[in-house]
Nucleic acid binder design. Structure first.
Lengths: 129, 129
DNA sequence: CTGAATCCGGCAAGATACTG
DNA sequence: CAGTATCTTGCCGGATTCAG
C-alpha cells in the first residue's frame, strides 16, 4: 500500500480558478488528496504539486495542521524524515471534497461556456449598451 | 414570497476563516444564499452583508456573473433598479453548499479546539522544542 | 439607486539563497 | 532531507469620492 505519488496526479492547470469551490488555501485541496491513502513525506508531496516551493508548501501544511486537518510527525533518524497525515477531522473532509469534485466535473462545460460568453459579449451590447 | 432579507441573516463573524470550505471569493457564498429564494436588488443585498462597500459588492457580483452563477437585469424605470438572480448553474451549487454547511456545523467545535490547541502548544514543546 | 474611479494597506505567493 | 530567511510582486478587500 501507499504507492508513489504520480507526477501527473493532478491536471496541468490545477488548482483551477474555474471551480468556485475551494478547500483551504490554494494548495490545501491537492495536499489533502495526496494524503488520502496514507502518510507522505515533505519531499514526496512536492512531486505532484509541480513546482511548489518549499516555503509555500510549508505554509500550506502549517495551515492545515493549525486547522487540525493533518498531523506532523518528525522522526529522529540518520536521514531526516517528516511525515504528514490526515487526522480524522481532515479525513472527514473527503466527503465534501468528493461532492465538490463531482459538481465541478458535471458542470465544467457550463463553467467554460460562461467564462467565454462573459469575455466576448454579444456584438458590443454588453454592460455599457 | 421573497420577503425582506434579515440584517442578522448571517452570523456576526461571517464569513469565517474557520471553515476550510469556500465558495468563490470572500462574499460569494453569502450572496448566493441571499439569492436562494428569488431575485434581489443591489441595495437589498447590502443589508445582510453588513458593511460591504458598493465597490466590493459589485466586484463579487461581477465575478459570479462571469462564472455564470447569477444573472443581472437592469430595468429602465423612474428609479433605477437592478436585480440579481441565480442561474440554474448557480442554483446547482446550493447542494454542495448545504453539504459544506452541514460539515462545518458538525465539526465546528473540533475546528475551534484545533485552532486553540495550535495557538497554545503544550508546555512549550511546540515546533521549536 | 447603482454603481465607477482612485488610492491604499496587507497579505498571499513565488524566487532565491542559506541552514541543521 | 526538511525546512528557514529575505525580498519582491500582485491581487484582494476596503475607504473615500464622484457620477448617471
Amino acid at each position: 500500500m501507499n504507492e508513489r505519488l504520480a507526477p501527473d496526479m493532478f491536471d496541468e492547470l490545477c488548482p483551477s480558478a474555474l471551480s468556485p469551490i475551494r478547500f483551504g488555501d490554494k494548495w490545501a485541496g491537492m495536499i489533502i488528496r495526496c494524503l488520502e491513502h496514507g502518510p507522505r513525506r515533505f519531499t514526496e508531496l512536492r512531486i505532484p504539486l509541480r513546482g511548489i516551493t518549499a516555503k509555500v508548501l510549508t505554509q500550506s501544511l502549517r495551515g492545515l495542521e493549525r486547522d487540525g486537518l493533518i498531523s506532523r510527525t518528525a522522526y529522529n533518524e540518520a536521514v531526516q524524515r517528516v511525515e504528514y497525515e490526515l487526522t480524522p477531522l481532515g479525513r472527514s473532509l473527503l466527503g465534501p471534497m468528493a461532492v465538490a469534485c463531482a459538481w465541478a466535473e458535471k458542470h465544467w462545460e457550463e463553467l467554460l461556456d460562461a467564462r467565454e460568453a462573459y469575455e466576448t459579449p454579444v456584438s458590443g451590447f454588453g454592460r455599457t449598451g
